[in-house]
Computed example of a mutant assay.
Amino acid sequence: MMPPLGIRWTIGDVNPAGFDALRLSIHGAMRLFGSEAAYRIYVNTIPVDEARRRVGAIADAVQWLPVDSDIPPLLRTYLGDGMAEGVAWKLLPLRAFPDQFELSLDNDVILWRIPPAMTQWLRSGDAAASLIAADVAAAFGQFTDLCAPVARNSGIRGLGPATAFERGLERVLRIKPVALRSELDEQGLQIAVLDHLGSPLLVETSEVTICSPFYPHDPELGRSGAHFVGLNTRVLPWDYYGKPATEVRLAHWHAVRPQVHERLGLDPPQQ
């Protein structure tokens, strides 16, 4: 038996491929966790109705909310004007399901099997247990010195109902009271908090690959899922072996989409 679970995503005005990935991420989560879980998407920078339209028919199966523009006092001091580079959208609100196990997925994380570490997190009986995804390289921004030297990313983050996430944030920001300037700072902050609270369980990259055509990422799908990093960006401002990186990124996505659909039990995608 799984404990009560809430799953949350955050989406903004990203590349259309990012909305395609979100659609498949919803399909995957609902296929794995069914009607017993709660599903919620927080929308920033675009109207909720527009985000729903871009996702398609499955949008009706989940709850959609605008991100509350009222930044928690705990974070307000550390955020610059304009939420530079989308920093901290994934922290608004701090908890979506405070009385449940809460799984936060990036919109470009698609699961077709529950990773073993996630099963362990949900069945451990430890309401304070947490979960994070492994990565192929460590990128923690200004919080590097507060994070254990293990490559991880916040594309998958799990909090138990008794995980003292807000208290951990307050503690880490007291130790390092710096303004968040990038998504790496946001990621490093979250991982520093989980390290401070205890050793989070780790979803290995063999289970959920950091999936892109760019080394050191893995172009192949994992046993349990894939995190399609870089898919949200409208323009990658560099070339990869003489080709525009944006074109290379999208070509890889379109090449693996049929496999993703198959693993989710969906009809082949329309080209």
Rank of each mutant, 00 (worst) to 15 (best):
P4M: 02
G6V: 12
I7S: 09
W9Q: 07
T10V: 14
D13T: 07
V14S: 05
V14W: 08
P16V: 12
G18M: 03
L24M: 13
G28I: 07
M30A: 03
L32G: 06
E36G: 13
E36K: 12
A38K: 13
Y39A: 09
I41E: 05
Y42Q: 01
P47E: 13
P47G: 11
D49M: 07
D49L: 04
E50G: 00
A51E: 05
R53Y: 01
G56W: 07
A57F: 00
A59Y: 04
A61N: 05
W64N: 06
S69I: 03
D70C: 11
D70W: 00
L74K: 06
L74G: 01
T77M: 07
G80S: 14
A84D: 05
A84Q: 12
V87K: 03
A88D: 08
K90E: 10
P93Q: 14
F101S: 03
S104C: 10
N107A: 11
V109N: 03
L111C: 10
A117Y: 07
L122S: 08
R123S: 15
R123I: 03
S124I: 02
D126I: 12
S130M: 12
I132E: 01
A133W: 00
A133D: 05
A134S: 12
D135T: 07
A137E: 14
A138S: 15
F143E: 04
A148C: 13
V150S: 04
V150W: 01
R152G: 07
N153A: 08
G155N: 09
I156A: 02
L159A: 02
L159T: 05
P161Y: 11
E166M: 07
R171K: 13
K176S: 14
P177E: 11
S182W: 04
D185G: 08
L189H: 06
L189D: 04
I191L: 14
V193H: 07
V193G: 09
L194T: 14
L194V: 13
G198H: 06
E207R: 08
V208M: 06
I210H: 03
F214K: 06
Y215D: 14
E220R: 15
R223L: 13
S224I: 09
S224H: 05
G225T: 04
G225H: 02
G230W: 06
G230N: 09
G230K: 02
N232D: 09
T233M: 05
R234Y: 08
V235D: 13
W238P: 02
W238V: 06
P244S: 12
A245E: 08
T246E: 05
T246W: 06
V248Q: 11
R249H: 11
H252S: 08
A255E: 14
V256I: 15
R257T: 10
P258M: 10
P258R: 03
Q259Y: 02
L264G: 09
